[in-house]
Design a binder for these strands. Structure first.
Lengths: 297, 297
DNA sequence: ATTTATACCTGACCTAAGTCAGGTATAAAA
DNA sequence: TTTTATACCTGACTTAGGTCAGGTATAAAT
């Protein structure tokens, strides 16, 4: 019972295909096969060029052409020749098309609400979905440099603060900590990295440039559902690469013994413990790592 | 970001269809379309009669016939007339068919292993899958009377004990508790109910018959992943129905204030708190409920 | 014994989805 | 300017999956 993970995965598989198949076939509720419905959704989602739609839905060129002719015949889309390139064509929803698209959106929303309605604690269900989506989409998680003032970055950091509050016995108050200025975590002095899984931010780390002869690693965070996928290591590796890139030769960071996984990672990846180098009240562990000089520097 | 549950469900949907679609199309790895592969799997899974397969896969009678003729032509199955009913026909895998089925099983296992291999904590991933499969399959959860000595029942009870150990500050040791004898939780004096979600036991409750003028409710448990689906209420309702059925007019139970949800349920469903009626060291709350006399009694 | 229902089969037909080989107009490279 | 590549389109064809109207043999009901 406990070790039979295969039957558990199959059970998941069955549940999800019967239910998600239902989600898919909800597209059928409007008397249109899946193909054209998907194309309409791609267009409504903001994709305008034929080639864009083709690669997004990975459709054969001929097939897409026919589907587009069909939607055109229904009066849902209009096709016009590209402005800069006469070969390319761009697609626009007509008024009727926009209405039809909105109807599909509404169907999709209703389905989502129905699934959540099955549970007294929908947040638990969503958390499980996030975990699975993130794990299955592991290969598609990509790192991106972002403005630390952006919505996504702010969301990461506030999740990070929440995490610290729950981890530290005394709680955590950003105001008391050495809060790095956003401009210190931007090129050319530093950077801020976000890990995105299909659009959802699931991790971050900041590189703070200083004038003290070293760069500082700040705000390393991986969301609950993305843990166990080796993401913090990926974030740190990329951060070190960028640090070298901007000419930093020595990195420092402060941490806390309550953050066991992070500390273990530092120890495993070439960081050495050093004496306290700041007066932030929260950290009780301090590390540094010397980087190989960048060939370009 | 936080309230946008629809985009989170869609993200889950995308992840799962691309990955589980992969699981489905793994069936294609053996040069056979999905249809016949599904039929072969149904037969390998122990379904022998044509009508059984038809309803399991919800296939049209004509379509299934053709698929069976195909598999027969490949030499994978043998069809023979039913023994008791000459209209029914039963299907058997040939040696080649059994090998082919085994090959599909191996493919499926490999896929499962690959998915789990993506995660450093596969148990977490499986738990999330269980949660989702159970929630999506909520309507298909059914209650079943079972022998309290059966594997499924024992699995439920040991999960129940583990739960109690973690809930009670002093832990929990069955040996010290009033452990009901299996024979007390069987017809005609009592019963043992199991909730099954697609074969997986996700909850239980026992009705213990006594000679003291009342029946006792024991071992009400709902697994972590099935909480929030109203299952304990369903179990209790069914248990009370059976209690009436076997002629019990008064039910009693003991519980503990550490089991908040359960206690809240009792209070909400017509149970009244009474004085201690046993000397079990664990419970600190005692309830009883008078049942309407069964019309058949 | 006759009628009705059931279980499975067959043939004819349909739709969705996709592949593939050209074809046409435009853009970019030589 | 000629050649080559690109973007899209069209027509012919294929496969998978499925529906539907009978047909045949057997079982159950009357």
């Amino acid at each position: 019972m406990t070790t039979d993970y295969i039957s558990r995965i199959r059970r998941f598989h069955r549940a999800v295909t019967s239910e998600v198949g239902l989600l898919d076939s909800s597209f059928l509720g409007r008397g249109r096969p899946l193909g054209p419905a998907r194309v309409l959704n791609a267009i409504g989602g903001g994709r305008t060029e034929v080639s864009e739609i083709r690669s997004y839905l990975s459709l054969d060129s001929g097939l897409l052409s026919r589907l587009l002719r069909g939607l055109e015949g229904e009066g849902l889309i209009e096709v016009e020749d590209g402005e800069t390139d006469g070969r390319r064509r761009s697609i626009r929803l007509t008024l009727a098309g926009a209405q039809e698209y909105a109807a599909y959106e509404a169907l999709s929303d209703a389905q989502a609400a129905e699934i959540l309605g099955k549970h007294a604690m929908p947040e638990k269900l969503l958390a499980a979905m996030d975990l699975i989506a993130t794990a299955l989409g592991k290969e598609r998680i990509h790192l991106e440099e972002a403005d630390p003032r952006s919505t996504a970055a702010q969301a990461c950091m506030s999740a990070y603060y929440t995490e610290l509050s729950s981890r530290f016995e005394r709680g955590f108050d950003v105001a008391l900590s050495c809060d790095p200025d956003a401009s210190d975590m931007e090129r050319p002095r530093g950077t801020f990295l976000i890990a995105l899984s299909d659009g959802l931010p699931v991790g971050c780390v900041g590189l703070k440039g200083t004038t003290k002869g070293y760069g500082e690693v700040k705000r390393l965070w991986v969301s609950q559902e993305a843990r166990g996928l080796g993401l913090s290591r990926r974030l740190m590796t990329e951060l070190e690469r960028i640090a070298q890139d901007v000419g930093i030769e020595l990195l420092r960071l402060d941490s806390n013994s309550a953050l066991g996984e992070a500390v273990a990672l530092y120890r495993k990846t070439g960081w050495t413990e050093i004496e306290r180098f700041n007066d932030d009240p929260y950290p009780d562990l301090f590390f540094e790592k010397r980087l190989a000089r960048s060939w370009s520097g």
